[in-house]
Design a binder for these strands. Structure first.
Lengths: 130, 130, 130, 130
DNA sequence: GTGGTCTAGACCACC
DNA sequence: GTGGTCTAGACCACG
């Protein structure tokens, strides 16, 4: 379920964070779902338990998952979006970078908007099919 | 002209690359324009010359600038967009991540499309005003 | 009556200890009152009996409750404050940490004293209303 | 300068975080001051570099210190207190626990207020003597 | 069984 | 030189 690219320059723990957040957003993982234990996950993606632990810690800090001592790790049920100003600025910065990159590749505004729209809808579609 | 955030987790050389690409796209830097020498640039932004050197190398690799030995470094004149498949995939991956993040912040599809469109146009506007 | 937060990083047994001590101090639980048996309490707060057991042991160690074999567990009647040096040092250490945290949040001395005073009086008020 | 109690149940990384925050609040460490490198600090307090690293990461997350790649770690200059609601609730909860504990030790309201006030002023005094 | 912490030692990117 | 990441293996508290 979780794809890790060991060659990527993106840290493994970060890839795990991204993947799980994506699955939660897509509805593949739902509030209350149990995640594999640190050790299980470590063996699934053949990484070190510490690495998984770090990913889970980060997800917990972001309020995406919750840890219950001795029980395991679960997707947060009552997730409420927090839109801090700083986070929004950060997002806009990332968007700018992407558009600069897109322009360098000769992609038109229409094309990029189309890609964004499609991506957004792909995620939504998954949610409706639950 | 070039803004560097020493505290950012993004490498300085990468920040330089991004800034220069952005300025070229915006038309602030134009084909044939001369860039400061490695040492000049280093003193301008108070960074290590090695760091500038690495940024210039990267920009050269991406065909954004070219170095003429004994003369200096110039913005490439005959830039032609290269849309390699790999690069496009990479871009789409980045877009997906941004949208996941946006959804986590509770931003609607319309809002995100608006932001993308505005960003795109902001860059275009600069170009027309040259 | 007893609120447990399974998600908290504070051990459940510790939360039970804290809650019961608080209720005794507030006068909600009084000397001689019978506490639920380990199993009852376990089912009340849906926790593992071992966890309750551990909490009760800790409370007994602190002389807050006492267990009479075959009868049950009772709030200690003749509670006399013990102010060991070590315990006082520990308390002062905790106060220091709180004040450091408060200063980091920009809370003034007056404000923090006010909070402390209010908290102290809230607990007292409950006692007088018995 | 930094006192670590290896026997304490408080994690070493947490002790480091607490100590450094305290020193910053007291003015012993000031904005812009350089902290020992991860390896230096590790050898100073004879702990593992990873442990220091974790402490520094946490401090950075709390905006107490800043890391500049390849340079080192510095105390944040422009610290601005952030008083989120959640953090304030957390603080109040801790205060309640301390007061419950104090009452159990037979400490009067006046005594506890005195201790709080003294602690607060001790910290301030250090600041003025810089 | 669960996750949390720590050590030891390694490699890497960055400056 | 700096910090960041990862692995391997260990111990512990908690439930």
């Amino acid at each position: 379920m979780i794809n890790i690219d060991n060659k990527s320059s993106i840290p493994i723990y970060q890839q795990i964070v991204d993947e799980i957040k994506e699955q939660v957003i897509k509805g593949i993982l739902q509030g209350g779902d149990k995640l594999p234990s640190v050790r299980e996950m470590a063996s699934i993606i053949t990484a070190n338990p510490n690495t998984i632990s770090r990913a889970y810690s980060e997800l917990e800090r972001q309020n995406v998952i919750e840890t219950i001592r001795g029980r395991g790790t679960y997707v947060t049920v009552d997730y409420k979006p927090v839109m801090e100003k700083e986070r929004l600025e950060n997002l806009k910065g990332n968007i700018k970078k992407i558009i600069v990159e897109a322009k360098y590749m000769g992609i038109s505004k229409e094309k990029i908007l189309k890609i964004v729209e499609n991506t957004y809808e792909d995620i939504d579609k998954l949610n409706k099919n639950d």
